[in-house]
């Protein structure tokens, strides 16, 4: 028996990361309890408020709501894909098993992150296809691509927030808590009703919320509003870093 470890070629380590991410995607795309809420809520809300009930607002409101429901749809794979799944896997022993196995460092979180990015992009594409089928989005191809990319990257602060919540709560308790964060934050960030129609005090509150900043970026990259995005992008990056640090501290204490 030799005392040196068998060498793991770099190519195999890369493959381990890829396999982890691919398996994570397959696993969630197959799980109706994950896919149905994240795809149905934004599309149904968009159909209801953006199309069916939108008599007065016309095309402008429909275009605005397409963007804000895309942002609404992007939040959930991050919050639930990370938060609920981490909370469940801490309880089910899967995380313990993975930590005991020689899984490359970070593969677990990177796999979940890529899964959430893919799911976020999927939700945005679904909304765009739906809007096109119902008579056009009014956006150019490049604007639509920019929105998909914004969704895929914009999911990251919500991944970090979900991760932090997932380290605080174990098991079934995470989903209701995340809903208590998700739905009020979406409303207060102006994703359901434009901010300008909300009471003044609530408008003042919006910049505290990451979803508000993502909505501003999304409205800007689609050309709906021309606002500078740098500040909003920085705010999102800041939130991501903050939640990651909080989660890392929690995880270290959990051992």
């Amino acid at each position: 028996m030799n005392t040196t470890a068998p060498s793991m070629p770099a190519a195999r380590v890369w493959r381990a990361y890829l396999t982890e991410a691919g398996t994570e995607c397959v696993r969630y795309m197959r799980a109706p309890s994950f896919m149905l809420p994240i795809t149905l809520f934004p599309t149904l809300f968009y159909l209801l408020f953006g199309v069916v009930m939108n008599h007065a607002g016309g095309e402008q409101v429909q275009r605005y709501l397409l963007v804000s429901y895309a942002v609404f749809g992007v939040m959930s794979p991050g919050l639930f894909g990370f938060g609920v799944s981490l909370a469940m896997e801490r309880e089910s022993g899967l995380l313990t098993l993975k930590r005991a196995l020689p899984m490359p460092p970070g593969a677990y979180l990177i796999g979940k992150m890529l899964m959430a990015m893919a799911a976020a992009a999927l939700v945005v594409i679904l909304l765009l296809v739906l809007a096109e089928l119902l008579g056009g989005t009014g956006y150019s191809i490049s604007a639509m691509l920019a929105l998909v990319a914004t969704g895929a990257l914009g999911v990251l602060p919500f991944c970090a927030l979900g991760l932090w919540v997932g380290t605080l709560v174990k098991g079934q308790g995470a989903a209701p808590i995340l809903n208590m964060i998700y739905l009020p934050m979406a409303f207060l960030s102006g994703l359901w009703v434009p901010l300008k129609q909300l009471p003044h005090a609530l408008q003042q509150l919006a910049p505290v919320l990451p979803a508000y900043h993502l909505d501003q970026v999304a409205l800007s990259v689609t050309g709906f509003e021309s606002v500078p995005t740098t500040g909003h992008v920085l705010a999102l990056a800041g939130y991501t870093a903050l939640f990651l640090v909080l989660a890392a501290r929690r995880l270290r204490r959990l051992g």
């Binding site: 068998p6 060498s7 793991m8 070629p9 195999r12 493959r15 381990a16 396999t19 982890e20 398996t23 397959v26 696993r27 969630y28 197959r30 799980a31 089910s92 022993g93 899967l94 313990t96 098993l97 005991a100 196995l101 020689p102 899984m103 490359p104």
Partner: peptide, 28 residues
């Protein structure tokens, strides 16, 4: 090392072959 823990519920939607491929990918 190889590990079999008593309390580990694996993802139910994954097929056995996929679980095997994933775990194998961790090893040289």
């Amino acid at each position: 090392i190889g590990v079999m823990l008593q309390e580990a519920r694996l993802p139910p939607s994954l097929r056995v072959g996929e679980l095997l491929r994933l775990t194998s990918s961790y090893y040289p």
